[in-house]
Simulated assay, not measured.
Amino acid sequence: MNVPIKQSCHLMNFHYGDELIAFERVIRPQANSKVLIKVHPDCRVIVSAPIDADNDAVLNAVKKRGRWIYEQLRDFRKQLEYTSPRKYISGESHYYLGKQYLLKVIEAPNSIQGVKLLRGKLEVSVRRKSAEKVKELLNDWYKTRAKETFSKRLDDVLEHALWLAERPPLRIQTMQTQWGSCSPNGRITLNPYLVKAPRDCIDYVVLHELCHLAEFNHSERFYRLMGQVMPGWEKVKERLDGMANIILLN
């Protein structure tokens, strides 16, 4: 199983005035009859509802919050107007472990090309200024830091996974739709761009995969394990989901 960047879902929609608003219905794992509605910064509307809730009942609950959903979407759309693709030039803001760092590109023809985290800035030295080269060096740096960070986070949280007799193998691989996954033979794969997220978000993904080594499906046992090893994981997951569009912005 895996930790998707965007959850598998059932798509539904409703009209608010002249606007058709689409939302994703996902299963709410907790034994609670309430319908939870979340509007994410990337303008995804996620509705968590019990698996046995009727679609009409869910739709009615969403329509009652129609004005609030519309206003949230309007505000986030305004914010997205100011979000532009990365140009990989000095002054841009880039994330690492949940914090923002200013990018400083240094053209030094006789220096070694590379990336340094120095005095609150990500300094990239290149022989000749090129957005593609800066992007390549940054991506390589993120992958190196991801390998180090994820290995350490795995070691730190492994003590909570009492069902494992040994440390599972870890692989780093860029993925477009998943933060992490695990194979039937017990290998964990993590997305290097997850290293841009806060440590607790990284721990959530690692623990999610460790729980899948005990329970491959998203069953009651799986969610019970998640609650035991990381109380309050739902809020951490919500924060990671909300950062996805920023973390993956190129």
Rank of each mutant, 00 (worst) to 15 (best):
F14P: 04
V45N: 05
R145W: 12
I106M: 10
L11H: 12
L210I: 05
G120E: 08
R127P: 03
Q178C: 12
I69P: 00
L137V: 01
D42L: 04
T83A: 13
W233F: 11
K6V: 12
G98E: 03
I37Q: 00
L36C: 15
L207Y: 02
R171Q: 09
Q72R: 14
N2F: 12
V206T: 05
K63L: 11
S183Q: 09
K152I: 07
D52Y: 13
G98C: 01
N191Y: 02
Q72M: 09
Q30I: 07
Q176N: 15
V58M: 07
H160W: 12
L164D: 06
Y204W: 03
Q228D: 13
N55K: 01
S90V: 02
V105E: 04
C9E: 04
Y16Q: 11
A244M: 07
R239K: 15
F216P: 00
V157A: 06
D155Q: 12
N110T: 15
R187C: 13
S84W: 15
R239F: 08
Y223G: 08
L137Y: 08
I247D: 02
P169W: 02
R28P: 05
E234Q: 14
I69H: 02
K143H: 10
S181H: 06
R187Y: 13
D140F: 08
S219L: 00
L164W: 06
E136L: 10
S33H: 14
A108E: 09
S111K: 15
R127W: 12
L137Q: 01
D75E: 09
D155W: 09
M175R: 02
I246L: 14
R25I: 10
D241N: 04
Q228H: 08
N2S: 12
Q79F: 05
A146W: 04
D52P: 07
N217C: 08
E107P: 00
R221W: 02
D18V: 09
L210E: 04
L102W: 10
A53I: 08
V124N: 01
D140K: 11
K133S: 10
P50K: 01
I247F: 06
